[in-house]
Design a protein around this nucleic acid. Structure first.
Lengths: 213, 213
DNA sequence: GTCTATATCGCGATAGAC
DNA sequence: GTCTATCGCGATATAGAC
């Protein structure tokens, strides 16, 4: 591709990385800062000037690293969702007991909320609008895989293995559960009164056993 | 009407209402349309030109009815939250049985989501940013009253009356429950497979009895 | 009550110097 | 890799004719 005339020219540049090769340093720093600002103010309310200011550079300089504001958000969300999917799948194949499997799913989800709160907040607040925009459609595949291959599959397993009653609409159960889990973005604090593991236990209790005395 | 000359001038205007007296007609129509657009595209992504277009008028004409775009959103949310609070309080004082009281709270909340979906979606997507903006602070009072006077009080009652186990952190229970209920904005359809009452029953089952078989 | 016309501002993005 | 400078556009809001 591009222009190497004879043999040469070939090793002249770690630049021209706009396509997607990662710096792993400055690029990642900027994305981390941008995540925070997007989460705090909302994507539409955040200007590239805001992001630049938080990074200590001017807005124009951001375009050396990224093609557009949209591209920044897309990269932030894609990376995080990929990591989340891997952790989910790991739990799915490595946990035998039905109740423990569900509990560990809770723990993965809650850890995501606790340790990538900015991404979690962006997804909670904006995903339902982003998913209709062409640029962000790649996120929908990941979302659907998490929904179907991870959660819905595990819920089906739980019915088969006798943990969950068979007369409850599992699509509704899934929606209620995900709503309960994702809403933790509004209050979960990794340094709070309870550990993530303890909170996963509480979710397991309320969802499987119920609150009755 | 307008200008009948003789006795006249005294009854010349239902206008000059900018302060807050309600038309109940055009004003309400515009607010209903605006709610829809705000919910669909997000508040920050909606221009006053968009709202005008959906109403069949030009953006400048909106300022005859409202002081600003912010004022439109505030009025939409205040009205709805006031109505919701009234319905909640009615359930609280009129239901004796502990389990039924909780179920009826679910039904009020789910009806709100089903029949005022635009407001519910706006609140779900934007409340956490709006609550930090001075203009929208009046909403926080209503939110806190719903949280404390309605839900938290009823949960306390439920423990006292023996419905709910006493070893569960009720603040966490409240947050989990509200997350589960509000997430219904993403899927609840009043003409869907289940009635609102049936869905309230399902919520009661999953929260009180649990999903175990 | 709506339209015409416009003021004023901040946005995303670009080009080229350094 | 960042800055200087700026383009072109669309945003909220206003003033006054009709």
């Amino acid at each position: 591709m591009s222009d190497s005339p004879v043999h040469s020219r070939s090793a002249a540049k770690p630049r021209g990385r706009r396509a997607g090769v990662q710096d792993s340093t400055r690029r990642a720093e900027i994305l981390a800062t941008a995540s925070q600002v997007f989460a705090d103010r909302g994507y539409a309310n955040t200007s590239v000037r805001d992001i630049g200011a938080e990074c200590g550079i001017l807005s124009g300089s951001l375009y050396h690293h990224f093609l557009s504001k949209d591209a920044m958000l897309l990269e932030i969300l894609e990376r995080s969702m990929d990591g989340l999917l891997v952790k989910y799948l790991n739990v799915k194949v490595s946990t035998d007991d039905s109740r423990a499997r569900l509990r560990n799913l809770f723990e993965v989800a809650l850890s995501f909320v606790a340790y990538e709160p900015n991404v979690a907040r962006i997804l909670q607040n904006e995903f339902n609008q982003l998913k209709h925009i062409d640029t962000f459609r790649p996120l929908l595949n990941r979302y659907n895989e998490i929904r179907k291959v991870v959660w819905r599959d595990v819920l089906d397993q739980s019915v088969e293995e006798g943990l969950i009653r068979s007369d409850f609409d599992l699509d509704m159960a899934y929606r209620i559960i995900m709503g309960a889990v994702l809403s933790a973005v509004h209050w979960l604090n990794p340094d709070g009164e309870y550990s993530i593991g303890q909170i996963a236990d509480q979710y397991t209790i309320i969802i499987i056993d119920g609150l009755h005395s």
